[in-house]
């Protein structure tokens, strides 16, 4: 905070932290006596509108956002509109007319949507049980969250061993006589889905748990005294208050799952069933060296995500999203 000291005396840089704020308005009246007593100093008028030195705290974030996000994104959009041949939309036309490329949209959706949905829905009962305080909550939460710290590669390795034809999962089912031959659960759609669930669940769970903790537990108790049984309390009180949080969690989980890349390669079938959009973009960029097409696919990934997000937000907009009475709200 060295820059904003222009107006005040530079001789006391070590003044108590509270003082510069008190003293700050002083130089302004001295500098603007001509404007008359009726008009408060400019600094005050700006502060009334929320413009003061505190805004400088935003500077690093804004700079980072522009340099590392906004500029590359606009650059990518520009790149996608400069195809190697044809008009400016030629890449987009090519993507949608080639089933090999356009099919990746569906392949990505059918992985990301169920994975995000499952992660959100599976989090609800667990978070419901774990809200409030009890012994061992931190340990249990830590165990549930552990997979987030594991890399995708480690998870993929685990999946290959566990769900493989000779893995425990199949061996148990075979021993129990539930199946006659091993289920094919790796190097295809299922492997990638399991991977997305294992790595995405902790994230969704933590979010849902914090939303759940934000709901005042007295509300359910009040509903109970009014005659509502356990299921009615959940359906009429907890779920409606939780739903906006679930929508948000779903969006974030979906975005995470939509950009799936490593596990689609490692435990999926990247040539066919799990050739997701990220793989298509990667191949365009690093196998065909067509950066314009890669950019096009990346832009389309964003566009399809935005469509899903918009639909969810539209649904969320119809819900009560205010105060839920708890400490977290």
């Amino acid at each position: 905070m060295a820059e904003p000291r222009t107006a005040s005396t530079p001789s006391t840089p070590a003044a108590a932290p509270a003082r510069p704020a008190e003293r700050a308005p002083e130089p302004a009246p001295a500098g603007a006596p001509a404007s008359g007593a009726a008009r408060p100093p400019l600094r005050h008028r700006l502060a009334e509108r929320g413009i003061d030195r505190m805004l400088l705290l935003l500077l690093p974030a804004v700079a980072t956002l522009i340099a590392l996000f906004l500029y590359p994104m606009l650059y990518g959009v520009g790149l996608s509109l400069q195809p190697r041949s044809g008009g400016i939309f030629a890449n987009y036309v090519a993507f949608f007319t080639d089933p090999y490329q356009s099919g990746t949209v569906w392949k990505t959706m059918r992985l990301a949507l169920p994975a995000a949905l499952f992660n959100v829905l599976a989090s609800v009962p667990i978070a419901y049980r774990l809200r409030g305080r009890f012994r061992g909550k931190r340990l249990l939460t830590a165990i549930l969250v552990l997979p987030v710290t594991l890399g995708t590669v480690l998870v993929a390795d685990g999946i290959l061993r566990y769900f493989g034809p000779r893995g425990w999962f199949n061996r148990v089912l075979l021993e129990l006589g539930l199946i006659d031959e091993p289920l094919r659960l790796i190097y295809n759609y299922w492997g990638v889905l399991f991977s997305l669930i294992i790595t995405g669940f902790p994230f969704a769970f933590l979010l849902v748990l914090s939303y759940m903790s934000g709901i005042d537990p007295t509300l359910e108790r009040a509903a109970a005294t009014l005659g509502a049984g356990p299921w009615q309390r959940i359906r009429r009180i907890t779920l409606p208050l939780l739903a906006p949080g679930l929508a948000t969690t779903f969006i974030l989980s979906f975005v995470l799952a939509f950009s799936v890349f490593p596990s689609a390669n490692l435990v999926g079938e990247p040539a066919d069933e799990t050739r997701v959009m990220a793989i298509a973009a990667y191949q365009a960029a690093f196998e065909k060296y067509d950066y314009t097409m890669a950019s096009t696919i990346a832009v389309l990934m964003g566009a399809f995500e935005l469509v899903v997000i918009a639909l969810v937000l539209l649904w969320r907009g119809r819900m009560y999203t205010g105060h839920t009475g708890g400490k977290g709200a």
């Binding site: 005042d216 509300l219 108790r221 009040a222 205010g322």
Partner: peptide, 12 residues
């Protein structure tokens, strides 16, 4: 019937 200290009205 119960009246709670923080009222516990259903906010939605």
């Amino acid at each position: 019937g119960m009246v709670f200290q923080n009222y516990a009205l259903f906010p939605h």
